[in-house]
Amino acid sequence: MSIRNATIQLVQKGAIPLLLAIVAGRQLVLTQTVGLSPWHGGGFGMFASIDRDEWRQVEAVATDCEGKTITITLESPSDLFSSRSLIYLRTVPELPLLATVAQALLQAELRPTEQPAVYSAHMASTSNSTCLQQVRLQVWRLRHQRQPSLIWYEPISPLVEARP
């Protein structure tokens, strides 16, 4: 068998399984390093972990210029973030992305919601952005204990702070 034929056979029989193994290995690494949800990324971690992206929470807490602490809700639909970018943030909470979102919140216009001390974030022009001293952003994952059946949240990303 010529080298050319041997190479072709190797590609035909080895390339795709190797690709699967590389992608799945990468997913395993990303779950441990940047907090990728095990349900995504091609590592076949679905139905092994309760850490589903839709069960994660993005917590955004701000301090306004009067020193008051307020919570910013990051639910879609929002004119500041698309639902796709919020899903991405929950699924892959990388530091640069968290920093970008925190900066965007710092410059956003905050509007009160029906809940006390909870605000929604909107696109702002320079004139109507809310005066904030600081924004802290963190992504949390769900935890569960079987007996008794307790649920709680734990951070999956570092706490990111943005200041003007």
Partner: peptide
């Protein structure tokens, strides 16, 4: 492998919550 490593599968807590 994921089920063995995840830490919340072997004690049944994943499926219980699900």
């Amino acid at each position: 492998l994921w089920k063995l490593l995840s830490g919340e599968y072997l004690d049944g807590s994943f499926l219980h919550l699900t």
